[in-house]
Structures are given as C-alpha cells and as structure tokens.
Design a protein around this nucleic acid. Sequence first.
DNA 1: CGATCTGTTGAATTTGCTCAAACAGAGTGG
DNA 2: CCACTCTGTTTGAGCAAATTCAACAGATCG
Lengths: 234, 234
Amino acid sequence: MKVDRSLVRHVPLFDKMADDQLDRLLAHAVSRRAPQGSQVFKQGQPARSFYLLLHGHLKVMQVTSDGQQIIVRVVHPGDLFGFAIALQRSDYPGTAVAAADSVMLAWPSDLWPSFVEHIPSLAVSAMQTVGQRLEEAHTRIREMSTEEVERRVAHTVLRLVDKAGLHEKRGIRINFPISRQDIAEMTGTTLHTVSRIFSAWEAKGLVEGGRQKLLVLDVVGLAALADSTRRETD
Amino acid sequence: MKVDRSLVRHVPLFDKMADDQLDRLLAHAVSRRAPQGSQVFKQGQPARSFYLLLHGHLKVMQVTSDGQQIIVRVVHPGDLFGFAIALQRSDYPGTAVAAADSVMLAWPSDLWPSFVEHIPSLAVSAMQTVGQRLEEAHTRIREMSTEEVERRVAHTVLRLVDKAGLHEKRGIRINFPISRQDIAEMTGTTLHTVSRIFSAWEAKGLVEGGRQKLLVLDVVGLAALADSTRRETD
DNA sequence: CGATCTGTTGAATTTGCTCAAACAGAGTGG
DNA sequence: CCACTCTGTTTGAGCAAATTCAACAGATCG
C-alpha cells in the first residue's frame, strides 16, 4: 500500500512538512476510489476515517428531518474532508457523494490524535482549514441574508469557477457534472429559479448551459452582476 | 494583575487543565470591561488580542460593502472569542459589540502559539470550539435554505433561551437587551417582519415583548412551531 | 424504444419586503 | 414636572421576487 509522496506534496496542508514525517503519515494511508454518484460516507455514520481528496469532486450534503436537502460544501482536490474526529465528533455530520469519479486517501480516525501529537504543524494547518471553512460558511450566511437569489447564484458560480474552473477557448468550464438542482441546493433556492436565471444569463451571453454542464463565457460580467449594489443591471 | 483561577474553572475550555497550567495562562491575562454599546474590536483591525467572556453578552457583527449588517454570532459567558490568530488570520473578521455591560479576559495574540505548544489540551479544545461554531453556521445555513421566516425566528429564539435564558415565575427571560432589529439580523429578515411575528406570538400567548426585552412564556409551544413540518400550526 | 432524469417555461400564488405613518417609552433638559 | 427628542416598535397597504403548480421537451440509459 505504497502512496507516493509526490501525490500530496503540493497540498497546502502538507507543504511545510518534512519528508520523513510525510512518509510516516502516508504509510498509514489507504487509497480509495469512488465512482460518480457513490457515497463515501453517510450522515450519522461513525466517523471511522478521515480523507484527503486527490482527484475528482465531492458534494457534502445534509438532509433535514422533513427530507429537504442542502449542499453544505463542495470538496475539491487537495481538500481534507470527513475529519469530524478532529472536531471531537464521533459521527459524520453530512453525506459525501462523488459528483465525478474521485480518488482519495483515507486514514483511520484513531490515528488523528497521534498524528497531531507528533506533527505539530498538522494541528496548525488543520485549525487553519477549519477556520477557512468557518469563514466560508459566514460568507454564505451573509449572502443569504442580504442578497437576492440572482446575486447569490452569481457568487456561487464564481466560486466554482475559482475552485473547479478549467480554461477552454470559449470560456471557463466547471470541471464536473453539476445540475441546476445542485446549484439550487447551494444557494437556498429552487431548481426552477436557477433554470430561469441561467436562461436569462445565456441570453445575455454570460454563460452557456447544458445538461449537468456549465461554461462561463464572461467572468467579468458575472462578477459585475454579483457585486452590483442592487438594480443596476438592465 | 491577579486573575483568580475560580473565575474560569467552570469554563469547558479549561476544566481539564492542571492548576499550574491554568495559573500560568492566567498570569498573562488582563481583565477588561466593556460597557453596553461599546466595541471590543472592529472588523478589519489587526487581531492583537484574543478573549474569554466572563460576564455579559456580545454581538459579533459583519457589515457588507453596501452597508447592510448581520449578526454573525452572539457571545455568551464562557465563550472564547476574537481568536482569529488561531485560524492564522491577522485581522478580526467581524466587530464585537457589548449587548450588555460585559467583563472579559484578554491575552496578547502573540502568546497563542506558545500556549498551544505547552498546553496540548488547549489546541484540542480550541479545535472543538471552532468545530462547534462551524456546525452552528451550517445549521443556520440549513435553516435559511429550507425554512420560512417564522420558523427561523422561532429557532433563533429557542437558541437564545438555551444560551441566555433566565428562569422567572412567568417564563424564561432572555437575559440581555435585544431588539427586533437584532433578531432580524440573526435570521436574515427585516425588523418589520420580526415585529409582526412577535405580535402574532404574543396574541397566542407564546411570548411577551417589550422594548429590547423578550420573555418566552411557552417554550414547548415555540418548539412545536419551530419543528412543525410546514402548515400545521393554526 | 419506452422509461427516467434533467431542464425549460408559463401561470397562479404567496411570502416577505418596501414604503409610509404613527405610536410608546426612556431619557434629557428646562 | 412637563415638553421634547430619540430610539425602538407597531401596523397597514401595495408590490415584487421567488415559490409552487403544471405541462412539456430533450437526453440518456437500460
């Protein structure tokens, strides 16, 4: 079960780590594949492992008691996920679903404390990661409190461009299959509204849609829309 | 600048800590008072200190570029706050305002790394705290995505009851001055809507309002309303 | 090739916001 | 003590954004 150092060397979480420490860490890692649509772990399950995404994209979802679903966050390559254990939780707070075929490393949760103990920089990095995640959550709360749907959708798409954008001749492609429903669940609206918004944007030449596909043609225009202080876009 | 151990002994963050460690920690602490309405720190300021609230209540707010305000969270006694430094940030992401006269301990941010190094349990506790905060943020996102305003307000009030409730003969009093505007900023709505909701609740005998005052008469009824799966309350 | 999934679009409806006006209570100063 | 002001609260009316309802079209897949 050899995992090569170069696979994770570029990950911010590990870039300050000495080679031998990194090797010791990787010695306990198991690599795992998740085909598109499969679940890596489920909400409520005991958190037996924590993960690092190497390739692909995951959606972390939560289901409410009355069956409604939201996407808590999207996991991109290089992101640590499922580390409930570090936050002193015994179960996963959400369900991780592969949005595209994905590859990840998995460590047994039991090992976390000893890792942190022996590799202090890991604790610092982990703390930083959680801190960023908290900030993202606050950003989302702020947007949901103060912005109308169209601007929220614009912000969400721009974040996707940033995290999962692939440059093409005609624009920037979101690099994994994503539906209107998904975007609705990320912005707190309905797929109907998202569909209408995308149709309007398409008419304006900002984006180009398609079944589970999204190509952003005019990032600047979209950003202008996202930052516009109410009613200037006409 | 002596700070007594007993002041903080009950705080979860410190309850597993040895006496001598705690004393070493407290040796560097400075106590500080914030009269009602005063700011403890401002959004964007360099994060020179981190704090522990001993007494009172604070609101942490963020202002959007176009001037709108939201309340990111409410700080209650025993909560650590303003520890941006632990998350590797150099400035405060929000503004902390005293909702009531408050007393807190302050430590220079510089000391955080050495504290964490010498007191490993502090790192674990801090991580846990941030984790809980992240979960709260996700709960709020979930509520804002899936629930109508009335239920969100109900949930918010119930959280206040839990964190800042004071038992009285007639019901449970929220133990610090809080306005409709505040609750609007916590739930992502307007003070008008909150006022209307409270008026309706008052008519039903669930709560009793007043200028910056809130007395919850029927916690169970409120909880029923908060958990009702759409349109059953009539 | 039917069945299913995703997306589109119109129409009716509703929620909650904006605008507007008035009111209540606490504190202030004459 | 009373008029005045400030701040927070209440309430109505109209309106707009977004949801719900509904029907359909095009892809995709077994």
